[in-house]
Nucleic acid binder design. Structure first.
Length: 166
DNA sequence: TAGGCCATCTGGTCCT
DNA sequence: AGGACCAGATGGCCTA
């Protein structure tokens, strides 16, 4: 197994700072962007997704670029939030590789297994006290969820939970 | 050097 | 209309 103790990667992002930087720097970034774009569109694969519907917006190329950059920034933020959620998940899953960061796929797999084992433990302890189970997502799952809601009813978490529980 | 993992960019689609 | 979400592409970093 390989260790995943790599440092923070310093990636060059074509962001608004770059955009507002010295013109030559900005130009370089834009050229880089265009090159990449060309490589893609001119590549061996013709786009499988046909451009449908949405009317072309009458934006100047500068506006378009600005919108792209803003969109990139939002996407970065979104991915950072996703990664924070992964990190939070890593911290509550018991695993043997405390010194090594779990990969995303490992995190998800372990989380699934962890939930499964907790469920079966609770089931054993309850000794048939709760209704029959048809998988975690069934009646048992909703029972657990109800219990959680009772415990955390006034919590801020409730809204959060409901938001993501559907 | 190959392969795994990841961050970022990008354009299409969905949703509000 | 515009932001959120998604998936594909790309390239960097790291380990075996």
């Amino acid at each position: 197994m390989k260790t995943k103790t790599k440092g923070k990667k310093q990636r060059q992002t074509v962001d608004k700072e770059a955009f507002s930087e010295e013109p030559s720097v900005r130009k370089k970034e834009l050229v880089k962007c265009l090159r990449r774009k060309e490589r893609r569109s001119g590549g061996n694969k013709e786009s499988s997704k046909m451009p449908t519907g949405r009317a072309k917006r009458p934006w100047s190329s500068k506006d378009r670029l600005l919108r792209r950059l803003e969109s990139n920034e939002r996407e970065r933020q979104r991915m950072h939030k996703l990664n924070n959620a992964f990190q939070a998940l890593r911290e509550v899953i018991p695993h043997v590789r405390a010194e090594n960061k779990l990969s995303k796929i490992e995190t998800l797999t372990l989380a699934k297994n962890y939930i499964k084992s907790l469920t079966s433990i609770i089931l054993n302890m309850s000794n048939g006290h709760f209704p029959a189970v048809e998988g975690v997502g069934g009646a048992w799952g909703s029972k657990l969820y109800q219990h959680y809601q009772q415990q955390h009813g006034e919590d801020d978490h409730e809204e959060h939970l409901q938001k993501y529980s559907t």
